[in-house]
Write a protein that binds this DNA or RNA. Structure first.
Lengths: 290, 290
DNA sequence: CGTGTCCATAGCCTTTGGTTATCACAGCCG
DNA sequence: CGGCTGTGATAACCAAAGGCTATGGACACG
């Protein structure tokens, strides 16, 4: 048998007052309503809780047993409500950060610390997002801010702040003809098969294929990859070569692959992005932290 | 904001299944009913508890915070119900014993021990009852068994078992003319003012005034007394003298008063009594104990 | 012997909790 | 592609719960 928590409060008030009329006043209900609820509680528990002796109301043994237990249930429920409230507050102060690759560069660590100062109750929740969404989850609303490589699709919808500008490298298998070189010109790569981002990545796919450095010559796509793991696996497999940012070359050093600086390309831009119509304080705090 | 404990069970079931349809089945309610109650819980807490993403249901941060807390509330309530159940069981095994005077004679101690063997969960609750009710609470249902002096009013309604038969004494003030005597004949007391029980005590009042040893001569009533304390206070005050059982003379030795054995009276009978229509095992156990 | 206090009951209305039927949407399979 | 299936939301409806006001009956008190 379950009961409404309100009825437990009714019971406790009545047990404290030992007077239905006064208890009803304290509870802001009519006396008959209180009587009825107490009776119902008694029926549910299959025992009387009060002896309504003529003139005096007093607790039965069962009522005396229930009183501390009921107080405990109420305390426990109040505690539960507090826990929910805390969780809501913490979430309101938290931000979901979208990433497509590891960022490195000490960025995340600094962001965490800086944000913790501004929002002591908040947390940064990091989400790895595949390249099917070049906005790293921003577009679908899965994150609040993201670290993305420019350009991104529908860029007008987002505000961006460039946080790093780096030359590009090419990653080749260690037995590739160029593997020993300390630098290559992009022109030397034009006939190589390239790994490509998914079509959904839009302009970002073109960017990492360096379409506008090819003078209209078609690109050979060796495979399509959706994240960093797939990319390096594909290079090792010999499916093709791939351009990456110099910073990422330092982070991702995989045995069996070699990264070589490439000349003749515009540098890549890593940017912090958020929805242009998102004016929440938490977002601004995060942006200012970086 | 308070909620029905049932709704917490609904929430827990849904959080465990992460599927409204299955949770509703487990709870033996329809799925719309479950949906509605969960929504109402969410409104009460002013936060969403589940993310009903298309295809998947999962807990929000608030929901995750509520889950253990809700389990705790439910556990706590189950505990409260158990406490009430225990109290009811204990009371069912307990007996209220009515007394009008101290009983002494080691009776109560033996009764307690014997009863504890038969009803380990039960207890004897002793109630002192004034002589306004010569049945020591039996008539009004305030006790289950009583130790009474015979005769009692409406004696057919009760079953009795005599536990002690004792000669009677008279209690006088220490400066009374008879105070030095080692025994007196009742005939010597006929002109003394007597303390009387309340009229409601009926035949018992007559008995302790020894009406049927007076050959129709009227009794002088010095005062009416309702319990042992009043009786001795009245004797000390000089309001009158009073007959008591020899056993009680031993128990109640008050400075300023003297008890003297009286000859020429029928002996008094202390009896265990219970309602004739009360066939409960607890009552029988108690009777057999004595 | 009124009068006031206090709990219970009765009659009525609104809200709540439940039902069935149906819709909208996603995924799956042929 | 089109129909089937599984899932949650919605609508319409009904019974029960929970509230109120008015009233009754028992008792204490002056």
């Amino acid at each position: 048998m379950d009961t409404h928590l309100r009825d437990l409060r009714y019971f406790v008030a009545t047990a404290e007052e030992l007077n239905f009329t006064r208890a009803a006043e304290r509870l802001f209900v009519s006396q008959p309503a209180l009587s009825k609820q107490i009776r119902q509680l008694e029926e549910g528990l299959r025992t009387r809780l009060f002896d309504r002796d003529r003139r005096a109301v007093e607790l039965t043994a069962a009522g005396a047993a229930l009183l501390p237990a009921a107080r405990e249930v109420i305390r426990c429920w109040d505690e539960a409500q507090r826990a929910v409230g805390d969780a809501v507050a913490a979430e309101a102060a938290s931000l979901r950060v979208g990433l497509s690759t590891s960022v490195g560069r000490g960025l995340l660590q600094r962001a965490r610390e800086g944000y913790a100062v501004r929002r002591p109750n908040g947390r940064l929740q990091i989400r790895q997002i595949d390249w099917d969404d070049a906005t790293a989850g921003l577009a679908e609303g899965r994150v609040d801010v993201a670290l993305v490589w420019l350009p991104i699709p529908n860029q007008d919808a987002f505000a961006t702040r460039v946080v790093a500008t780096e030359p590009r490298c090419v990653v080749v298998r260690e037995d590739h003809a160029l593997a020993g070189r300390s630098e290559v010109a992009f022109a030397e790569l034009l006939d190589e098969p390239f790994l490509a981002l998914p079509a959904a990545a839009g302009p970002l796919r073109d960017y990492w294929l360096a379409i506008d450095h090819r003078d209209g010559r078609p690109v050979r796509v060796g495979a399509t990859v959706s994240n960093a793991d797939e990319t390096f696996a594909a290079v090792e497999e010999g499916s093709g070569i791939v351009l990456i940012a110099a910073g990422n070359a330092a982070i991702y050093q995989r045995p069996g692959t070699v990264a070589i600086p490439v000349s003749g390309l515009t540098p890549s831009e890593l940017a912090l992005a958020w929805r242009a119509d998102d004016h929440r304080g938490t977002v601004r705090d995060f942006v200012e932290t970086l």
